[in-house]
């Protein structure tokens, strides 16, 4: 599993992992994921707190022996679409879904750290190329973290002839059920 950009902070002590992460993050585009490799045990709590404080999304940490791999997604004040996709369902309705497909358009790393069981993963950026993987005859429930990326994705699907598309609001952040991992 890889981020869009990787930062090697191995062997560095506090506060260097934070300082390096801040600098690296400045060069990322909104929505990209930074993968920070660190050996400082304190970086686990520190990076999560840092991301929270500056408004980025801390996705999670994988530990491999002494090596810590942290994943952080760059966020800014995402522009709100003027006219949201008209067909929506509440995230709670996915609890009792009988048919259709849950399409998770978050990044692969976010999906890996926790997704709704059975959901299909196609990151928003890959949707155009992989649109044929989705069955047009089924109901498509598009989900992301907060409902913004899925709004884009739902519009894209509708523009490509999908008839039964729903944007799931608000998104995984409000999901009350269990999340599956794929690490």
């Amino acid at each position: 599993m890889q981020g869009d950009v990787q930062l090697d902070a191995k062997g560095l002590a506090c506060p260097m992992p934070i300082v390096k992460t801040k600098k690296a993050m400045d060069s990322l585009q909104e929505g990209q994921i930074l993968e920070v490799l660190a050996t400082d045990k304190g970086s686990k709590a520190d990076l999560a707190a840092w991301a929270d404080s500056v408004g980025h999304q801390f996705i999670g940490t994988i530990e491999e022996g002494n090596l810590l791999k942290h994943y952080i997604r760059k966020c800014s004040n995402e522009s709100i679409e003027e006219k949201p996709f008209e067909h929506t369902v509440s995230i709670d309705e996915l609890q009792s879904l009988e048919s259709g497909v849950i399409l998770d358009v978050r990044e692969e790393v976010e999906y890996a750290f926790g997704h709704i069981k059975g959901a299909k993963s196609i990151p928003l950026g890959e949707l155009e190329n992989r649109i044929n993987e989705i069955n047009k005859d089924l109901e498509i429930y598009v989900v992301c973290r907060t409902g913004k990326r899925s709004d884009f994705a739902a519009k894209k699907l509708a523009a490509n002839g999908f008839k039964k598309v729903f944007n799931v609001v608000p998104g995984i952040t409000a999901w009350k059920g269990n999340l599956s991992k794929k690490l």
């Binding site: 506090c14 506060p15 934070i18 300082v19 992460t21 801040k22 520190d46 840092w50 404080s53 500056v54």
Partner: peptide
């Protein structure tokens, strides 16, 4: 300096 750099990195 640890506190100062950490705070500055946190904007």
């Amino acid at each position: 300096f640890n506190i100062a750099t950490a705070a500055a990195a946190t904007e």
